[in-house]
Design a binder for these strands. Structure first.
Lengths: 200, 200, 200, 200
DNA sequence: AATGAATGAGCCTTCATTCAT
DNA sequence: AATGAATGAAGGCTCATTCAT
């Protein structure tokens, strides 16, 4: 009979579980999933190795929890932006805000993003979570626009394309690897292109 | 005393080295870098475990070689497309070709792409190689367009943005995870958007 | 400072201790000593893990208590049979009864018997307890027969041999592993052999 | 893909495998299966921990091999005794020989016998092996007696009962735990009883 | 050059036992 | 007396790398 994982109800326990998730978050960021071992996570969280398995089924379970935290960190600010949309949608105003948000999120979660994303191909659940995140954002925006009475042809495709562009751009912006690129220029370009997409 | 890695000069040796790289390529594709062990690579290549270390410094070294092969597989077809460009550039014709090429490449190398890309964040050299690939494609296209006398404002930014879109789209197209997306529609959208980018 | 093990005087405590022993009994039966962990015992007993160490020195101590219970379950019915013996002993009648009793005991305690017996070799105290059980039965029967005025040459050896046969047979009977054996026939054979032993 | 266990063909390898089995044999004897760890086995065998898993699937696999060795050690001498039987069977002569053999085997393998037997209840394969051993001995004797033209009623039951008695007795004889028993007397008793079984 | 057996550090996980409450 | 969270040593096993041949 397998030990079931404690579902912590007491505050102390929840805090401890969070400590472990944070430690995982930090270490996965720094040295990746495979570069991290459970002993290290425990030490960083200030707990014993044993108790880690009191809160999590196994190492991968920690990963899943870290992922969830990450997903929320990314999703929530977007939700707020979407909520604020009002009719008629002022694309010239809202698109830059979205780009800014994406950049901000990227900046703050740069490394964990990479560490987690890199597991998406090897771990089905992780991959699925990322897909779901994309789906949620796209769907939410789609619903909101419809609700606001915006008449857009092929809205889902447009939204998805726009999100892809924002995603790619903010990634590049944060990593800033190509010195022949003027990211300020590119930013304007992305904005205009997306606005054009929704205005036609 | 460090074992120096043999630089194989004889044909037999070169073939053997390639066999190992191919085995690595196959296995990394199938089960990822961390899911593959060197014994398995050797077996698949039809050589002994020991000799693997005659040709490669370590496991990571195999990865680097696999990466090179992959990079070329992606880069070469693009080079050919670029070479064929002639003045004046017919964007409506050439963009779809590029998209098709990207899709084709993605289809054929789907899994290895994921396996390698997933290491980019943890391994600097791998990351750099991907950056360089992007740079090369962008730069080559830039030079060609200039050479053909195309007058484009902010060409590098446009090219880069276009490549990002093609990249994202072909990825999505091949993986086809979002059932609310009509990828045919999206494809047209991408084409038009990119063409619009270069026509204005 | 060693925790002294509480000798529970209050009824509630005694009941709790018994609950733990019963839980141990059940679990050792089901999955063996090494397949059982103390947390599981506590859970099954409806107590906390900690308090187990209030009543028992360690896991092995539970084992010893379980063993005692088991020993009594085996010994008591035999005692009753022995008590009922009257002069002159009717072996044809009493031997089958003993066999039946042995079978019954075996059936009811099949798994715990195995679990405990399997520890006899590794744990001296457990081994000793089993020896003592055998001794007690043999000695009790010996005394009784003498008291009843039965004239038997080498009574202890005969009794012991008889007990061995009954033991072996009831074990085989319950496990019924050899399909080329007719256990009914064998049963008669054992009875006759033992009766013969005491009649000559 | 699981690493298959090397089936050693070269002499050196076979010797090494045997070394490990012997180490397991010794340690299981001394401290039991659960008291032994793989590192200890490796050390005692003079090899590294890793290579143990080159020859064996896991710790239990070593146990199974030790068991096989043990089974043969027990079975072979009995086979030889059975082979020598000739018509008409002289039970008065052959039974004592069998008892002697059983005692000898027991003496030499006392501890491993206990260690292995103790696992029979928890590990199905181990249990099955012991059953098979009993079956083989009983069946072989049965066939031989029939072949020699001995007319015996219920031969299998008699043989089995006889084997049980020999087994029990030699066990007791070697462990010599009951000081009220004269094992010499008991030995005669067993012999006579068994002979009586086959003569009637 | 080549083999593949051998090494041993390191990893994930379990669990008897203790301790703060 | 009682709880159950926490501890940390120990165990089985893997695998990149080396070495004897």
């Amino acid at each position: 009979m397998k030990n079931l994982v404690r579902e912590p109800q007491q505050l102390r326990s929840i805090e401890k579980k969070n400590k472990i998730i944070e430690a995982g978050y930090a270490l996965f960021s720094e040295v990746g999933y495979y570069g991290t071992n459970t002993a290290e996570i425990a030490k960083r969280a200030g707990v014993s190795t044993g108790i880690v398995y009191g809160y999590f089924q196994d190492k991968r379970d920690i990963l899943i929890c870290v992922l969830e935290i990450y997903i929320n960190k990314v999703f929530d600010p977007f939700l707020k932006l979407i909520d604020k949309l009002s009719s008629p949608v002022n694309y010239e105003e809202v698109i830059p805000k979205m780009i800014d948000q994406a950049i901000k999120t990227h900046k703050n979660n740069r490394k964990i993003h990479e560490a987690l994303h890199s597991l998406a191909s090897a771990d089905e659940a992780v991959g699925a979570e990322f897909i779901e995140l994309e789906d949620n954002i796209t769907l939410q925006i789609g619903e909101k626009l419809q609700h606001l009475g915006e008449k857009i042809e092929n809205p889902m495709e447009k939204i998805h394309l726009a999100m892809d562009m924002i995603q790619s751009f903010s990634h590049e912006y944060v990593f800033d690897k190509h010195d022949y690129i003027d990211y300020f220029v590119m930013r304007e370009m992305v904005t205009k292109t997306i606005v054009g997409l929704f205005k036609n």
